[in-house]
Design a protein around this nucleic acid. Structure first.
Lengths: 336, 336
DNA sequence: TTGAAAGCGCTAACAC
DNA sequence: GTGTTAGCGCTTTCAA
């Protein structure tokens, strides 16, 4: 592994000259000739800056952590892509972790956040709001950005238009003639669920429909939670004719439970879910969903965190371009 | 952020004494009294070793990279858990990445592997065998362990019993009375596919059944690949009565395509897939699968890489405890 | 049992 | 335009 001093020696210049050229410092007053010589030698020796040396000196690792509740959730594919694309543009690396790694007082949180390994944190805590101390004091010294989780107006929040997306889903069901529409939501404490439920209710109101409180559940976003919701909703004396499910994974569990009860989708009941994923296209029936701008969310969230690292002030950011779009598959049909 | 010298000063000892105690060096000849004093002060100041300082000095980052083809694949959930549990036991951190990050000459590979950020690499390259140079010379200087991918006998290979698992799946189909059994495989170059196909053929032979080469496909492990396989197999003049699918994601795509063609599972055809996941339990019908020891694979693969970091010699490792098990759901039925 | 000191690779303030 | 130098936090050798 060639070091800076190797390069300098071989190019016949001082270490600092080599450093100035190779870290392209903005005010690198170096002659054209030496510059090209240094660059040539660096290439010959396949020089790569040692991250530890650089980090120690500059008190920056150029690494940000991205924490999501469930790493292997297909929903997050595009988020991760967006974050990584933005990160590489700014010459940063992304360290991925799971929310459970941040268990208070845990080994992992210490290693991840406490030893100067990361300059900032991008956090999607999942259902449960994150307490300050779960972050082990990290938030006091380093920037934290919340990915579509906390209240949309909180400083550091980067948010998607959940409410508008929910309205879009419900509007489609209304267009299809449905009136008895259920809402299978996330846990009540979850800010995203609050927004999605608000959208559901607002659109129902706009359509002149009343919400039957017996048709509103709040179990969570997993397949199991969705199955629970189905069990409750399909047991109502007067069944809904359509369900808006606040998460696509829950919708898949809901579909499975419906089949167990021989309820046929979309003949007996229509289903629209929030978020697209490959699993939604391959379920039976293929799910009609509202696709959200996850890639852009990730991209802009990284740029936001990068701005904060460089001294910017926290603000609230809404990522609504591109707007949520309805992807109509086969889980929806006209009401009869 | 308290440093070692802060702790030393406050405890009234030298920096080196503090270092010896806090990095619990094996030969830390320190009196009991000073030791407890140092530890007390370290706790008071919430001292955490700075990773850059330590890495610079010791030429080790205590980080290993785990690269998988598709981060958001439910199959890998248990693998990641196993790796992380083992890593934390050895006081290491896991940096996750995607195979595509290793695109030759890419920015990401450089940042990930070339700047001394990681001490070793755990690699699941996916379908395609990895060329030496795609790793950018990393393998020449640092340990690399291959996760269930290359030939099982290669040094550095940590492997699962793919062949035995395939036999288990086929055996169950044979028990159910099936004779015309198809194999929907991965790409032919993939070593895991070679093993799974070998298991398929061996078990067929043991059962006294002949393999119809028209019923063997090799498209890949994704849902799309599985749909392709279904399109081919269900178009055969004489259809198979059962299919062993070499990957559960492919099986989900295969199920979707079967439904598009109004082929009913398991009435018209039985399906068994390799690997379990939450999506397999929530598909329609719920998939009968062979569950593989992914957690243990991850755990032991990390221990292996850790051994290599400390100077051990590469060897081939088979993780077959616990053995693959059949999880019978509703995609299989007796032949008629 | 303890401390002094060197140096890992790098950046940046300063001197020339 | 270029070089010298100090020092980031840590481990480890050597001397006391």
């Amino acid at each position: 592994m060639a070091t800076l001093s190797d390069v300098a020696a071989r190019a016949g210049v001082s270490i600092s000259a080599a450093s100035r050229v190779l870290s392209d410092a903005p005010d690198a007053r170096v002659s054209q000739e030496t510059r090209t010589r240094i660059l040539r030698v660096a290439k010959e020796l396949d020089y790569r800056p040692n991250s530890a040396g650089r980090a120690l000196r500059s008190a920056r690792s150029n690494v940000v952590a991205l924490i999501v509740p469930d790493l292997m959730n297909a929903i997050f594919i595009e988020l991760v892509r967006g974050v990584e694309d933005a990160a590489i543009r700014h010459d940063h690396l992304v360290l991925m972790g799971r929310t459970e790694d941040l268990a208070p007082g845990g080994e992992r949180a210490r290693k991840l956040l406490g030893e100067g390994r990361v300059d900032a944190l991008m956090l999607q805590p999942g259902d449960v709001p994150v307490s300050e101390d779960a972050l082990g004091g990290f938030a006091k010294s380093k920037p934290v950005v919340f990915i579509n989780s906390v209240e949309a107006t909180a400083p550091g929040a980067v948010t998607m238009p959940d409410e508008a997306a929910a309205r879009l889903a419900v509007r489609r069901l209304v267009e299809l003639g449905h009136e008895r529409i259920a809402f299978a939501g996330g846990v009540p404490e979850s800010p995203t669920n609050v927004r999605r439920e608000a959208g559901f209710r607002a659109e129902m109101a706009d359509a002149g429909l009343t919400v039957d409180e017996d048709l509103v559940t709040a179990f969570g976003y997993t397949a199991e939670d969705g199955a629970l919701a189905a069990a409750v909703l399909l047991d109502r004396p007067v069944r809904p004719t359509a369900i808006f499910v606040a998460n696509v994974n829950a919708a898949i569990g809901l579909l499975a439970e419906a089949r167990r009860r021989a309820v046929e989708v979309p003949r007996d009941i229509s289903v629209v879910a929030l978020h697209d994923s490959w699993t939604a296209a391959n379920s039976w029936p293929p799910l009609t969903v509202v696709k959200m701008p996850w890639y852009e969310l990730g991209y802009r969230a990284f740029e936001e965190v990068h701005r904060l690292i460089n001294g910017g002030r926290p603000r609230a950011l809404l990522v609504d371009d591109p707007a949520p779009t309805l992807v109509e598959r086969e889980s929806t049909a006209p009401a009869h």
